[in-house]
Design a protein around this nucleic acid. Structure first.
Lengths: 233, 233
DNA sequence: GGGAGCAAAAAGTCAGACTTATATGTCACA
DNA sequence: TGTGACATATAAGTCTGACTTTTTGCTCCC
């Protein structure tokens, strides 16, 4: 994913990051730079760079005479894409997936409403194209092609909202959707109702009907919540 | 703010981070580690650590034989609290404030709905206390005390939602609210209607009325949007 | 028992030498 | 004239070792 092995410090992070985010070192654990450098067979300078990155993610804190202390989970930069990937790859995957899905359920409807006001004609066209692609691949176990258009659809919505912070969640949504298709149970074709909702959202955006776009998107995300048994009354 | 001057590399970041996020180096600009090290009068190792941190924020990309390239804004980790602080402190402040307010308007209502289902009795009590504190300080230019309770109120809501990603936005909301009180025009006492809404949200959460808590919180955030002339029809 | 001061431990800093990847320019050949 | 292979320069990457600084926790004396 992204850029694997961009230098030695990156290799170290590929091991240490997942280990920490998976909770292998409980909060308060103390590591020593020299020891880590030996363990990973890299120089202290490389190890220090790795620690600096972990520190910027608020996963650890480095203090003189003490060492590198693992911080409690509530301190972590849980929006850092790298942290999200590490957690999705490890034992915390289910919880991370739930957190992200709840976040989606908050953001996407509002983004759709904004998109209905702000989307360019090109974006409207793209959206319709994605929705049609979803329809075309919604039957006959063409899950990969369906996923492709689904991801593209949500990306366009988030981008067209005109809010940079919404737009940056495109990658996250892609991970969540991909996770649902690949890891979890999804042997059957996607729910026809969901497909229809996407088409309707595209229509609403094209028609500049913000309220309708928001309401329909909320229906989509509520469905996603139910799939994970969140919001069960 | 937070931890200023945690080592030489931190000092470098305090200058370089704001400069980059303020757009002083357009996307594509190339910096050289050695030159930067000279400019900031630090060793190359320190400079390298600083660059690694900027790289983990996706503000820059370091490539052999090329140098340290400034990445386009769309690549930045705009959820990184440090990046947010840098942007709030610089010329991009107004835009950053808008982005964050829109994000709030999406997240907080959903968080309030979840809080109504999940808040502990202690959290309900805290919420009521905050709301009362707001009422008590809503008149007579006691803006600082009002702000204190306002921030606490929204923090409790976000925490009580049970979603770690919502909870992590507490700091962001604090910055936005503080910004409104300090920087922007807020000479007068807060809007009485807004105060009443907070009290009602606390009531709704205590009464476990998720739908009402969500709707009332949405009214609060819509107010915040209007203050910044967003969503003008 | 408590405060002053000392010593050790770990991170922080620096300088210099060396390695590696790679963009770019050169030149021969088609 | 265009194109491919090759050489070269450049800037990041890595390693090592010596030194500094901060901070903890212990000891010793009052």
């Amino acid at each position: 994913m992204s850029t694997p092995g961009r230098g030695l410090h990156g290799r170290v992070l590929d091991t240490l990051g997942p280990a920490i985010t998976a909770g292998e070192y409980p909060a308060g654990s103390v590591l020593r730079t020299d020891e880590l450098a030996q363990r990973f067979e890299v120089s202290r300078s490389v190890m220090r760079e790795a620690v600096r990155v972990l520190e910027s993610m608020h996963l650890v804190e480095s203090r003189r005479r003490v060492g590198v202390t693992v911080l409690p989970e509530c301190e972590w930069n849980v929006y850092d894409p790298q942290v999200i990937r590490w957690r999705l790859a490890g034992s915390e995957r289910p919880r991370q997936l739930r957190s992200l899905t709840v976040l989606r359920s908050a953001v996407e409807p509002v983004a759709a409403g904004l998109a209905a006001r702000l989307a360019t004609p090109e974006q409207c066209a793209e959206l319709t194209e994605c929705a049609l692609g979803m329809v075309a691949n919604s039957r006959g176990h063409q899950l990969e092609q369906y996923l492709f258009h689904d991801v593209a659809f949500h990306r366009v919505i988030l981008t067209a909202s005109g809010n940079e912070m919404f737009a940056r969640l495109g990658g996250v949504v892609a991970e969540v959707l991909a996770g649902r298709t690949h890891h979890d149970v999804m042997f059957e074709d996607p729910d026809p109702a969901a497909v229809t909702l996407h088409v309707k959202v595209a229509e609403a955006v094209r028609a500049r009907d913000a309220e309708r776009a928001e309401r329909l998107t909320r229906e989509i995300t509520v469905g996603a919540l139910h799939e994970l048994d969140i919001l069960a009354p």
